[in-house]
Nucleic acid binder design. Structure first.
Length: 226
DNA sequence: CACTAGATTTTCT
DNA sequence: GAAAATCTAGTGG
Protein backbone atom coordinates (compact mmCIF):
# COMPACT_ATOMS: atom_id res chain seq x y z
CA UNK A 1 0.00 0.00 0.00
CA UNK A 2 1.28 3.41 -0.92
CA UNK A 3 0.76 6.25 1.47
CA UNK A 4 0.99 9.64 -0.12
CA UNK A 5 2.47 12.17 2.24
CA UNK A 6 2.24 15.35 0.30
CA UNK A 7 3.43 18.60 1.72
CA UNK A 8 0.68 21.15 1.58
CA UNK A 9 0.73 24.91 1.81
CA UNK A 10 -1.97 26.07 4.20
CA UNK A 11 -4.63 28.08 2.40
CA UNK A 12 -6.79 30.95 3.52
CA UNK A 13 -9.53 28.66 4.80
CA UNK A 14 -7.12 27.32 7.40
CA UNK A 15 -6.70 30.79 8.89
CA UNK A 16 -10.33 31.77 8.49
CA UNK A 17 -11.38 29.99 11.70
CA UNK A 18 -11.41 30.49 15.44
CA UNK A 19 -8.05 31.91 16.50
CA UNK A 20 -7.63 29.43 19.34
CA UNK A 21 -8.11 26.55 16.93
CA UNK A 22 -5.64 28.00 14.46
CA UNK A 23 -3.11 28.65 17.24
CA UNK A 24 -3.21 25.01 18.30
CA UNK A 25 -3.17 23.62 14.79
CA UNK A 26 -0.18 25.72 13.76
CA UNK A 27 1.94 23.69 16.18
CA UNK A 28 3.92 21.11 14.20
CA UNK A 29 3.46 23.01 10.95
CA UNK A 30 6.43 24.43 9.06
CA UNK A 31 7.15 28.10 8.46
CA UNK A 32 8.93 28.76 5.18
CA UNK A 33 10.50 32.08 4.31
CA UNK A 34 12.17 33.10 1.09
CA UNK A 35 14.62 35.87 1.85
CA UNK A 36 16.97 38.03 -0.10
CA UNK A 37 20.55 37.43 0.97
CA UNK A 38 21.38 41.11 1.36
CA UNK A 39 18.77 41.43 4.04
CA UNK A 40 20.18 38.50 5.96
CA UNK A 41 23.75 39.71 5.70
CA UNK A 42 23.01 42.62 8.00
CA UNK A 43 22.54 40.28 10.94
CA UNK A 44 24.96 37.51 10.02
CA UNK A 45 28.44 37.12 11.45
CA UNK A 46 31.16 37.67 8.88
CA UNK A 47 31.95 34.01 8.21
CA UNK A 48 28.33 33.28 7.33
CA UNK A 49 27.68 36.19 5.04
CA UNK A 50 26.59 35.52 1.51
CA UNK A 51 29.42 36.79 -0.63
CA UNK A 52 30.47 37.41 -4.19
CA UNK A 53 28.15 37.48 -7.14
CA UNK A 54 25.42 35.74 -5.20
CA UNK A 55 25.05 38.68 -2.93
CA UNK A 56 21.98 40.69 -3.62
CA UNK A 57 20.20 38.31 -5.93
CA UNK A 58 20.43 35.06 -4.06
CA UNK A 59 17.27 33.85 -2.41
CA UNK A 60 17.66 31.77 0.71
CA UNK A 61 14.92 29.41 1.82
CA UNK A 62 14.63 29.21 5.59
CA UNK A 63 12.50 26.54 7.22
CA UNK A 64 11.45 25.72 10.77
CA UNK A 65 8.77 23.95 12.72
CA UNK A 66 6.38 26.07 14.74
CA UNK A 67 6.53 24.94 18.37
CA UNK A 68 4.91 27.83 20.28
CA UNK A 69 2.05 30.23 19.52
CA UNK A 70 -0.22 32.73 21.24
CA UNK A 71 -3.73 33.86 20.37
CA UNK A 72 -4.89 37.49 20.31
CA UNK A 73 -8.57 37.47 19.65
CA UNK A 74 -11.33 40.00 19.38
CA UNK A 75 -11.94 43.66 20.26
CA UNK A 76 -12.44 42.78 23.94
CA UNK A 77 -8.99 41.26 24.36
CA UNK A 78 -7.12 44.02 26.21
CA UNK A 79 -3.80 42.29 25.55
CA UNK A 80 -4.36 42.71 21.83
CA UNK A 81 -3.25 45.80 19.98
CA UNK A 82 -6.65 45.74 18.30
CA UNK A 83 -8.48 46.39 21.57
CA UNK A 84 -8.05 50.12 21.02
CA UNK A 85 -9.81 49.99 17.71
CA UNK A 86 -8.74 50.46 14.14
CA UNK A 87 -5.53 52.44 13.84
CA UNK A 88 -2.98 52.49 11.02
CA UNK A 89 -1.05 49.80 12.84
CA UNK A 90 -3.89 47.45 13.73
CA UNK A 91 -5.72 47.77 10.43
CA UNK A 92 -4.19 44.50 9.23
CA UNK A 93 -5.62 42.59 12.18
CA UNK A 94 -9.09 43.71 11.12
CA UNK A 95 -8.49 42.60 7.55
CA UNK A 96 -8.94 39.23 5.88
CA UNK A 97 -7.21 36.10 7.27
CA UNK A 98 -3.92 34.68 6.05
CA UNK A 99 -1.89 37.90 6.06
CA UNK A 100 1.15 38.82 8.13
CA UNK A 101 0.94 41.38 10.92
CA UNK A 102 4.41 42.56 11.90
CA UNK A 103 5.08 45.09 14.65
CA UNK A 104 8.11 46.53 16.37
CA UNK A 105 8.28 45.89 20.08
CA UNK A 106 10.43 47.60 22.72
CA UNK A 107 12.03 49.65 19.99
CA UNK A 108 14.13 46.71 18.95
CA UNK A 109 12.46 43.49 17.96
CA UNK A 110 9.91 42.54 15.36
CA UNK A 111 7.17 40.01 15.99
CA UNK A 112 5.36 37.88 13.43
CA UNK A 113 1.63 37.24 13.57
CA UNK A 114 -0.78 35.54 11.21
CA UNK A 115 -4.16 37.22 10.89
CA UNK A 116 -7.11 34.92 11.54
CA UNK A 117 -10.92 34.88 11.38
CA UNK A 118 -13.17 36.68 8.89
CA UNK A 119 -12.52 40.20 7.70
CA UNK A 120 -13.76 42.81 10.16
CA UNK A 121 -12.99 40.73 13.25
CA UNK A 122 -9.58 41.60 14.71
CA UNK A 123 -7.52 38.52 15.59
CA UNK A 124 -4.11 37.01 15.00
CA UNK A 125 -1.71 34.30 16.12
CA UNK A 126 1.70 35.34 17.40
CA UNK A 127 4.43 32.90 16.35
CA UNK A 128 6.59 32.65 19.47
CA UNK A 129 9.10 29.89 18.77
CA UNK A 130 10.46 27.78 15.93
CA UNK A 131 12.54 24.62 15.79
CA UNK A 132 14.96 24.92 12.90
CA UNK A 133 15.45 22.18 10.35
CA UNK A 134 18.59 21.83 8.28
CA UNK A 135 17.11 22.23 4.90
CA UNK A 136 17.32 24.61 2.01
CA UNK A 137 19.97 26.78 3.56
CA UNK A 138 22.67 27.00 0.99
CA UNK A 139 24.59 29.80 2.62
CA UNK A 140 26.01 27.38 5.17
CA UNK A 141 25.49 27.71 8.87
CA UNK A 142 23.42 30.74 9.76
CA UNK A 143 25.30 32.36 12.57
CA UNK A 144 23.86 35.52 13.96
CA UNK A 145 26.11 38.19 15.40
CA UNK A 146 26.79 37.73 19.07
CA UNK A 147 25.61 34.14 19.31
CA UNK A 148 27.70 31.08 20.10
CA UNK A 149 27.46 27.67 18.51
CA UNK A 150 24.84 26.13 20.71
CA UNK A 151 22.71 29.18 21.33
CA UNK A 152 19.18 28.81 20.08
CA UNK A 153 18.32 31.38 17.46
CA UNK A 154 14.56 31.08 17.19
CA UNK A 155 13.24 30.43 20.70
CA UNK A 156 11.36 33.68 21.08
CA UNK A 157 9.20 35.96 18.91
CA UNK A 158 11.87 38.63 18.51
CA UNK A 159 14.67 36.19 17.87
CA UNK A 160 12.91 34.18 15.22
CA UNK A 161 12.09 37.29 13.23
CA UNK A 162 15.70 38.33 13.21
CA UNK A 163 16.73 34.88 12.06
CA UNK A 164 14.19 34.77 9.25
CA UNK A 165 14.93 38.32 8.16
CA UNK A 166 11.38 39.39 8.96
CA UNK A 167 10.86 43.12 9.45
CA UNK A 168 8.30 45.82 8.72
CA UNK A 169 8.89 45.42 4.98
CA UNK A 170 6.83 42.22 4.99
CA UNK A 171 4.04 43.69 7.09
CA UNK A 172 0.77 42.85 5.37
CA UNK A 173 2.24 40.22 3.07
CA UNK A 174 0.05 37.31 2.00
CA UNK A 175 0.94 34.20 4.03
CA UNK A 176 -0.71 32.15 1.31
CA UNK A 177 1.71 33.54 -1.28
CA UNK A 178 5.22 32.49 -2.23
CA UNK A 179 7.44 34.59 0.01
CA UNK A 180 6.30 33.57 3.47
CA UNK A 181 4.00 30.64 4.08
CA UNK A 182 3.19 27.67 6.31
CA UNK A 183 3.18 24.02 5.26
CA UNK A 184 1.49 20.95 6.63
CA UNK A 185 4.03 18.15 6.40
CA UNK A 186 1.76 15.52 7.84
CA UNK A 187 3.31 15.76 11.24
CA UNK A 188 0.77 15.10 13.92
CA UNK A 189 1.01 16.78 17.31
CA UNK A 190 -1.03 14.77 19.78
CA UNK A 191 -3.48 16.61 21.96
CA UNK A 192 -1.69 15.46 25.11
CA UNK A 193 1.55 16.96 23.78
CA UNK A 194 0.10 20.46 23.60
CA UNK A 195 0.65 22.54 26.72
CA UNK A 196 -1.86 25.31 27.38
CA UNK A 197 -0.55 28.27 29.37
CA UNK A 198 -0.88 31.95 30.14
CA UNK A 199 0.31 34.45 27.59
CA UNK A 200 3.63 36.18 28.13
CA UNK A 201 4.27 39.86 28.75
CA UNK A 202 0.64 40.96 28.93
CA UNK A 203 0.13 41.47 32.66
CA UNK A 204 -0.99 45.03 31.95
CA UNK A 205 -4.16 43.64 30.36
CA UNK A 206 -6.44 43.66 33.38
CA UNK A 207 -9.02 40.88 33.32
CA UNK A 208 -7.53 39.28 30.17
CA UNK A 209 -4.09 38.52 31.45
CA UNK A 210 -4.96 35.11 32.88
CA UNK A 211 -6.45 33.74 29.70
CA UNK A 212 -4.66 30.56 28.75
CA UNK A 213 -4.14 31.42 25.12
CA UNK A 214 -0.54 30.31 24.76
CA UNK A 215 0.21 26.91 23.29
CA UNK A 216 3.43 24.98 22.94
CA UNK A 217 4.73 21.50 22.25
CA UNK A 218 5.51 19.66 25.47
CA UNK A 219 9.21 19.08 26.19
CA UNK A 220 10.33 20.78 23.01
CA UNK A 221 13.76 22.34 23.63
CA UNK A 222 13.11 25.28 21.33
CA UNK A 223 10.17 26.76 23.21
CA UNK A 224 10.85 30.27 24.52
CA UNK A 225 12.20 30.47 28.04
CA UNK A 226 10.12 33.27 29.61
C1' DC B 1 20.83 29.95 39.88
C1' DA B 2 17.62 34.63 40.53
C1' DC B 3 17.06 39.12 39.79
C1' DT B 4 17.79 43.80 37.62
C1' DA B 5 18.79 47.21 34.38
C1' DG B 6 19.38 48.79 29.80
C1' DA B 7 18.86 49.01 24.76
C1' DT B 8 15.83 51.80 21.43
C1' DT B 9 11.74 53.59 18.56
C1' DT B 10 6.97 53.26 17.05
C1' DT B 11 2.52 54.13 18.50
C1' DC B 12 -1.12 56.33 20.66
C1' DT B 13 -2.62 59.60 24.60
C1' DG C 1 5.55 61.73 27.08
C1' DA C 2 4.79 56.89 28.53
C1' DA C 3 4.46 52.35 27.46
C1' DA C 4 5.41 48.41 24.92
C1' DA C 5 2.82 40.76 22.63
C1' DT C 6 11.49 41.30 24.10
C1' DC C 7 16.07 39.90 24.92
C1' DT C 8 20.78 40.30 26.71
C1' DA C 9 24.40 41.32 29.90
C1' DG C 10 25.55 42.12 34.38
C1' DT C 11 25.35 41.55 39.31
C1' DG C 12 25.20 38.85 43.47
C1' DG C 13 24.34 34.47 46.07
Amino acid sequence: MIVIRATMKLNRDFYNRNTLTVSKELLGKYLICKVDSTKLNSVLSYSSKVKGEDQGNKKLILVGKIVETEAYKGPEDLASHASRGRTPRTEIMFGPPGYAYIYLIYGMYFCLNVVTEPEGYPAAVLIRAIELVKEGIKGGRRDIKGYKGKDLLTNGPGKLCRYFGIDKSVNGIDICGNVLWVEDRNEIVKKEDIVVAKRIGVDYAKHCKDRKWRFYIKNNPCVSKC
